[in-house]
């Protein structure tokens, strides 16, 4: 019989990752993977595989609940998915060829960058009047803060495609969602307002994670019981966070999270070089 205690610990870890992910708008994978790998001693490929299935669940839930709000730019999703799925496919295959310590060092480097991005959160507004010409891939939505409809146009599509490819690659290599690369790129370089960028990225992440998860699954690197516990934990956690999220100021949490990520980066480097 499998250990009930270890299953409960994975469930709780998923819950914590779900809360943080929902409150901070990043996937919880960036904390779940190091916890599973460094604390619970899952091989990093198994930790990544478990995290990827939680990413699929979260992305699908978020995408379903956001429908109708016009924040998801479906046409942009379909274009960028071509790049992100290719990146993800390549990442999943590459992960099979790298050693655990190489993956840990890459994880450390990426976590370091994520922590810095979190502290420098970009927010370029990018919105145009509602009657502006948006082009084929642009979008319009109702902006709650200003109480009016706004429009935006896509700039530098090749940059968005490149960022999606890299995000897909990093996502399946390390088991994180990749939104942390896509959202700032879409926002700062490609003219997408932050809320639309976040919603569009969250919608795409399910496909990104799927290509990676399938490959790990085929290599027998997705242990079913911990994966089930993590998926359920993450969903409970993100649901709980939605009820407290509005009342909580997340500024201090972002700073705390950045601090945690710096520590994770250092630990991964130390372990990767041991």
């Amino acid at each position: 019989m499998p250990s009930a205690a270890s299953t409960l610990i994975v469930l709780a870890a998923g819950g914590g990752a779900g809360v943080l992910g929902a409150l901070l708008g990043i996937g919880g994978g960036v904390v779940l993977v190091p916890f599973l790998n460094l604390v619970l001693h899952f091989p990093i490929t198994q930790a990544a595989a478990i995290s990827l299935v939680t990413v699929i669940a979260t992305s699908s839930t978020v995408a379903a609940s956001r429908s109708g709000a016009h924040l998801v730019n479906l046409r942009l999703v379909m274009v960028l998915e071509v790049a992100t799925a290719a990146g993800s496919l390549l990442g999943g295959l590459t992960a099979q060829m790298l050693t655990q310590s190489a993956l840990q060092r890459i994880f450390g480097a990426v976590t370091f960058v994520v922590a810095i991005l979190m502290l420098l959160r970009l927010n370029t507004r990018n919105v145009l009047p509602d009657d502006a010409e948006t082009g084929v891939l642009g979008g319009r939505y109702y902006e709650e803060e200003s109480g009016r409809a706004v429009a935006y146009r896509i700039k530098r599509l090749p940059a968005a495609l490149a960022a999606s490819f890299v995000a897909g690659n990093v996502s399946s290599l390390l088991g994180i969602g990749g939104g942390v690369i896509k959202v700032p790129a879409l926002n700062a370089w490609c003219g997408v307002p932050l809320r639309a960028a976040a919603a569009t990225s969250a919608f795409m992440i399910g496909v990104t994670a799927t290509a990676g998860a399938v490959i790990y699954f085929g290599h027998g690197q997705l242990p079913a019981l911990p994966a089930a516990a993590a998926v359920i934990g993450v969903q409970l956690g993100s649901r709980a966070a939605m009820t407290i999220g509005d009342r909580l100021t997340v500024r201090w949490l972002k700073i705390l999270m950045a601090a945690v990520l710096f520590i994770v980066a250092v630990l991964m480097f130390v372990r990767g070089n041991a």
């Binding site: 019989m1 499998p2 009930a4 299953t7 669940a57 699908s60 839930t61 995408a63 379903a64 609940s65 956001r66 429908s67 109708g68 998801v72 479906l74 399910g206 079913a224 019981l225 994966a227 089930a228 516990a229 998926v231 359920i232 969903q235």
Partner: peptide, 29 residues
Amino acid sequence: TLERRLGWILRGGVVASTALLAIGLVLSF
């Protein structure tokens, strides 16, 4: 319309798979 339909597929898939995982998890013990 497309976004709403895709939302149904995603929600249905997650709810059904989570139910299977939850039952499987409990039965494992």
